[in-house]
Every structure is written in C-alpha cells, then in structure tokens.
Amino acid sequence: MDFSDIGLSLVKVLVVGITLGAGLPALFALGLKGLARTEARPDGTLAVTAGGRAVAGLAFGVVSLAVIVGILWIVAGGH
C-alpha cells in the first residue's frame, strides 16, 4: 500500500464515515423527533401522532438494519 492508495482509502473512509457515522445518528434523531410529535387524546392524555409513529418506525427500522448489517459484516470477517 503506497501513499496514493492511502489517500484514496482515506477519502473513502471519510465519505462512508460521514454517510453512516453522521447519517445514522441524524436518522435516529429524526426518529426521536417523530416520537415527540404528540397530540391530546379525547381523555386528555398525550399520545404520539400516527404520522410521528410512522416517521419513528421508519427511522429506527433503517438504523436497526444498519446495525444488524454492521454486526454481520464483523462476523463475516469483512473488515
């Protein structure tokens, strides 16, 4: 491995790092924001709106999937 290879690898790490390393937390945060969308029920209690639940479900689903793929990646020795 010479320096140009290392430079290229670093760019790749930076791109993937920003996509997953910053993207997944952002997605997770969006999920939490979904859970914070509440409305008052007829009985006066607060509940998460249907839309909020959908956003949260989607966001947490994608994050969980990414984590599972990450674990499989480690297990498969792909690192």
């Binding site: 491995m1 290392i6 690898s9 670093l10 790749k12 790490v13 993937v16 790092g17 997953l20 390393g21 910053a22 997944l24 937390p25 997770f28 990450g70 990646w73 480690i74 792909g78 690192h79």
Partner: peptide, 19 residues
C-alpha cells in the same frame, strides 16, 4: 451517540479497506 457511531463507522470502514 454521535461520537460512538462515528467511531464504529470509521473503524469498520477503515479496517475493511486495509487502512
């Protein structure tokens, strides 16, 4: 959470590239 996700993503990506 942001810090550890960043660490996990970078460690896994870099070692898969042999860096």
């Amino acid at each position: 959470m942001a810090a550890e996700t960043s660490s996990a993503a970078i460690i896994l990506t870099s070692s898969s590239l042999g860096l």
